[in-house]
Amino acid sequence: MSHLITNYYETTAVIIFGIGFTTLLLNRNMIKKIIGFNFMDSSIYLFLAAKGYIFGRKAPIVVNGVQDMEAYINPIPSGLVLTGIVVSVSVTAFLLALTIRLYYRYHTLDIDRIIQMAKKEED
């Protein structure tokens, strides 16, 4: 239990991941699903950023000529977060485009009803 409190960033991240994951999996509303997906990915970035941060140090941008490694935080997780954000933005765009198509066709955002309506259609 005490570990969960000391590592509260990671604990929060995993809880948010769980919320996002279940929303993406179980919610019937497409928009809420997309929000859930963004929750899920953001929680992973929180996890990464928390793990890359070293207390009392600065972002690794050399300004006053300080080149000592001890002065800066680990830059690799930040790089990973940036890459991850790009990926999740493009996937979100795709999902939203798909939702627009579904809405034009079926006039609802409820995925269960959409599936039922699609089953009745001929090819």
Binding site: M30, V91, R101, R105, Y106, A118
Partner: peptide, 11 residues
Amino acid sequence: GKALVATTRYL
């Protein structure tokens, strides 16, 4: 419509 729904589920 089936292909659209299939894409959504797949994605």
